[in-house]
Nucleic acid binder design. Structure first.
Lengths: 343, 343
DNA sequence: CTAATTTATGAAAACATTTGCAAAACTATT
DNA sequence: AATAGTTTTGCAAATGTTTTCATAAATTAG
């Protein structure tokens, strides 16, 4: 004890201290009901006194589950992914799993590399963000036959079960809302779409829905803006500085919308009297901003929870298929939208 | 191939396919320079064709590093932790590590349990959030001698090297700023402090600094508010509804301050003309809100990066001590604060 | 063209566990 | 007190790697 010879305790150390065999110690952890009460107690004492901690690596090479799930998101910083991850992590933690988390920054090459690393760690399952992935990614998942779920996005025929919201639907809903209020002069601000199927689906759905109603969004009223309040504030300011002004601005997500609201404020435009501004996502804070933001809620927590449940179940009972699930988006009408002023 | 007999390829499968021994395949990965070019190529082909993925668990039981670092935060949802984790994760990923992430929700019992789990996975290092932890946690870390860093918070004599900002200093800086503007009627809104040494340090420092200048914060101007814009909006509204109104409101973090700004808006108070509102943190968005928020920046990214660097270095070169580091907070004066109106 | 080096590979032990099987230790029954 | 039946435990093999040591093959020197 007083020595520095803390050669980490292994199962044999404990066995010796408890005067039993290694097998018995192993059983103490895995099938305690097989042990006599007295030995059980003896081992318990030995475990404590030796400061023994089981080695999952050694278990894992017996084909025993590693107890880890790999979670791969574009970035952790976006509140919305953080929410999903949080809910997912809590859910699977209750089932005894720990998550390996990594972010790929919308880089498909990195995503593949990270997935490989996950598999080297013998994760019991994988959760990816979004539906679109490199062919190599799907191939790898296929070949390793590891339970997989695609989170965040939902689509019917996705290659692996997807649990999430339909971004097409979300886009359509918000566009419909704006149309139903009577707006015809509509501007749009979208997130960059390459490597981001969510953003792509939304912008396509919004533009299609508008077009179908005969509303064309002119080039000058369209912006592609990175996910950042300051960027969107800048771009929206520029947009609002033009002579011809839209009566409504549809933003691809709530962060963009938030920036747009600030821009309107700075430009002296009142929201929603002069211009309606809407987003997608219903992030934390969207309800509280002044004016509160009309948006389409994507149920992040529910998605994370469901994805976690499905994956955990599939891992624990092999051959349980994970069923994809649509967590329906929901229009949340708040104070930032209203009909346009009569011309 | 066409068969369903996908008995996951192991090193022997590859060895047979390449007509070499397992040792040679092992060397192919770990010391490729020892192999003849031709065998190297033969093995490469075999690895591909068998879809072989190395098993880190098997390596780990040889005392080889697991390549994982356990990261433990109160919650992932707070942007500020998300930022730290993101920076940390990216930094250590460059060094070949993957993070095991878990959140304890400010529950010290859970923190201990999660740490144990991390150790079962034989993480190469551990990053905890904050300085205060259960005695059992420190004891466990000591006994297992695993490289550890405490992130987010900084204090000189912390039990393990801490890399972060001094919350005392941050609190003092923001209080000094408010005082220096000439405010004497100051209200305060703090986050709950139990199990949260950051919040505690801030509130204590703020109140002490004010008291030292002879400013007493009356009970009726003090609120304890959970981390949520809507909660702080509610509490601040209540505060602003009182007859006697403060000329400044100091908030324990930017989320609280954001809610307070919205509350002021709703109450018809102008910021900063009628009331100055300040926060701590400089979260994403704090610069862009209207009016932009005066706050103290806690350099989350730098903290995450430095913590990652320190820990990775300590792991790769054992006996490298990790040096604690103060990432100094920085007063950021923006539009939400100004001197009080002359009485 | 043989001997002396050097380089490339394989055999087997080691790592920390789990598990099937068999032996030992109890209990209950006569 | 001996037998049969249970319950509890230990032995040894197995898991997928790495690594040390020894040997075979290739290269160089004489």
């Amino acid at each position: 004890m007083t020595e520095k010879e803390r050669k980490k305790a292994d199962i044999l150390t404990v066995a010796k201290a408890a005067k039993v065999s290694a097998s018995t110690v192993s059983r103490y952890f895995n099938h305690p009901e097989l042990l006599k009460l007295s030995t059980r107690r003896r081992i318990e004492r030995a475990v404590r006194s030796q400061g023994y901690i089981r080695n999952r690596a050694a278990q894992t090479i017996h084909g025993i589950r590693s107890g880890t799930i790999g979670v791969l998101v574009p970035t952790i910083e976006h509140t919305i992914f953080a929410e999903v991850v949080q809910a997912f992590s809590e859910t699977v933690a209750d089932e005894g799993f720990t998550i390996l988390l990594a972010s790929h920054g919308y880089d498909q090459q990195r995503e593949y590399a990270i997935l490989r690393k996950f598999l080297e760690h013998r994760v019991d399952g994988v959760a990816l963000t979004g539906l679109d992935h490199d062919a190599a990614v799907f191939q790898l998942l296929d070949s390793q036959a590891v339970p997989t779920v695609l989170m965040w996005n939902y689509a019917n025929g996705s290659q692996y079960p997807s649990i999430g919201a339909s971004n097409e639907l979300a886009g359509q809903m918000i566009a419909d809302h704006v149309l139903s209020l009577g707006h015809r002069d509509v501007a749009c601000m979208f997130a960059p779409t390459e490597g981001n199927d969510r953003a792509k689906a939304r912008s396509t759905a919004i533009l299609d829905t508008l077009a179908q109603a005969g509303v064309q969004v002119p080039e000058t009223w369209t912006r592609t803006t990175i996910y950042s309040i300051s960027a969107s504030k800048r771009d929206a300011s520029e947009l609002f500085a033009q002579d011809r002004k839209p009566t409504a601005l549809i933003c691809g997500n709530d962060i963009l919308a938030t920036g747009a609201i600030y821009a309107a404020m700075t430009a002296g435009l009142r929201v929603p009297e002069d211009v309606s501004i809407v987003g997608i996502g219903d992030f934390k804070g969207s309800a509280d901003i002044e004016p509160s933001l009309t948006t389409v809620r994507l149920p992040a927590q529910r998605i994370g929870r469901k994805a976690g449940q499905g994956l955990a179940a599939a891992i624990k009972t092999p051959d349980t298929p994970i069923t994809g699930e649509h967590c329906a988006p929901e229009l949340v009408v708040r104070a930032s939208s209203r009909p346009p002023r009569p011309a």
